[in-house]
Structures are given as C-alpha cells and as structure tokens.
Amino acid sequence: MESLGAPGAGLAIALENLFPPLPSEIILPLAGFTASQGGMSLVAALVWTTLGSVVGALALYWVGALLGRDRVVAIAEKLPLVKASDVHRTEAWFLRHGTKAVFFGRFIPVFRSLISIPAGVERMRLPVFLGLTAAGSALWNAIFVLAGYGLGSRWHEVSDIVGVYSKVVLAVAAAALVALVVIRLVKSGSGRRRAGKR
C-alpha cells in the first residue's frame, strides 16, 4: 500500500473477492492506518477499496453468467450428495431474495464473494447488481477503513475482533453443511432400504 497507495488497496480488495482466503479484515484496517499516516487520503482509501470490491464481484458475476444455469445443473449432478433439484431450489430462493442476498451478503465472510455467481447465473440486472454491491461494499469497507484510521498503530486489533466473528459465521455454515450431508445420507439409506424390501 505504501508503494501503490489507494489503488493498491483497491487491487488487494478486488483480489480478495476472487480469492476469499485473502482477508479484507486485514487489508481494510491497514488501508485506514496507512491513510492515518499520510500514505493516502482517507477518501481515496474508501473510494478505491469500494471500487476494488465492485470489480472483484463483477468478475464473479460474469463467471456465473458464462457458466449459465444448464452448466451449473450439469456440474451439480456430478457432485456427490447434490441434486439438480438443489440448484432449482437455490434458484427459486435467489429469485425471491436475490437483492437482499447481494446487499447483505457483503457482510458475510466467503459468502460475499460467492453470492456474485448466482447473481450472474440468474442474470440479475447489471445496474441493480452493481448498485447493491457498491452500497453493501461501501458500508462494510468504511467500517474497517475508519476503524483502522482511528486506531492508528493498533489497527490490527480490528482483525482480531473480526477474526472471532468470521470463525463463528464459518462454524455455523460448516454445521449447516454437515447437517445437510447427514440428512441426505439418512434419506438415501432409508430410500435404498425401502427399495430393497420391494
């Protein structure tokens, strides 16, 4: 960030969208800290990080759009414990809640990247997608950039606090996934037993 300034922060956030293991919870407070030290202006940090979020999300939107519904269904049918009906249910859910999901999804680790793909698959209107992404990202980014700016050299305390939040969210998501797999396995086993009795 010291060498590239605010555009470097924006680039880092764009890459974070494409590669979720890069943590925005570290990049954003560090951008705020750099701004507090005069390495960039605070406004530039906010604008460039939001632009980076939108660019990264747009790239994933086009991945979804290029894959399309048929390819996603075909991929789902090849995955263990996943059915085409899962894709159709997800699609129906997204059609009902897509705008809220795109906006509020920006506040959830990993999900904030992935939500752009179904938006692309469903060809959500691009101005709507961009507007919701920019609004949600600007709010999320501002919280962390301003926290880093205010904390100064203690900027890393933000990532410590958010690390707990991220772990809780990911633990809940993992538990839900395990529950889904167990339910599928139980249903599959009971279905086979019923078929064997016939």
Rank of each mutant, 00 (worst) to 15 (best):
K197G: 05
F103E: 05
A174F: 12
A173P: 01
G39R: 06
L18Q: 04
F94L: 05
L67V: 01
G5R: 08
A134K: 08
D86R: 07
R184Y: 12
V87W: 04
L67C: 06
A65N: 04
I27W: 04
R184N: 15
S85E: 15
V182F: 11
E16S: 13
P109N: 08
S24Y: 04
Y61N: 02
W140R: 02
T50K: 05
F111L: 15
P23R: 00
I27C: 05
A84R: 14
V55K: 02
V73I: 15
S153K: 10
G52Q: 06
L22G: 01
G56P: 08
V121W: 05
V73H: 03
A135K: 03
L11T: 12
G136W: 12
S153V: 04
G150T: 04
M40I: 02
V128C: 09
P80Y: 07
V47D: 04
A174C: 11
K83L: 06
F144A: 06
Q37E: 10
Y61E: 02
V168W: 12
L79A: 14
H97N: 13
S113L: 04
L30V: 02
M124T: 08
A74M: 02
V178G: 06
G56E: 05
T133A: 11
Y149S: 00
A195S: 09
L180W: 13
P23D: 00
G150L: 12
L42A: 00
G148M: 09
S166H: 12
G163H: 12
V43Y: 00
M124P: 06
S188Y: 10
F144P: 01
A14F: 05
G196L: 15
V168Q: 13
R184L: 07
L177A: 14
V43M: 09
R192P: 01
G64I: 10
F129S: 09
F103G: 07
K187Q: 15
G191K: 12
G64A: 03
T34G: 04
S188D: 13
R89E: 13
L58K: 01
S53K: 04
R192K: 12
L60A: 03
F19R: 07
I13P: 02
R154Q: 13
P109A: 14
A171D: 03
A175K: 00
S3H: 14
R193N: 08
A147K: 00
T133H: 03
K100P: 01
V55P: 01
L67D: 00
G98D: 06
T133N: 12
A6W: 07
S24V: 07
L15W: 05
A31T: 11
K197F: 05
E25T: 05
V172I: 15
S166W: 14
V168R: 14
I108S: 06
A173G: 07
G150M: 07
L114T: 03
L4D: 02
F33M: 10
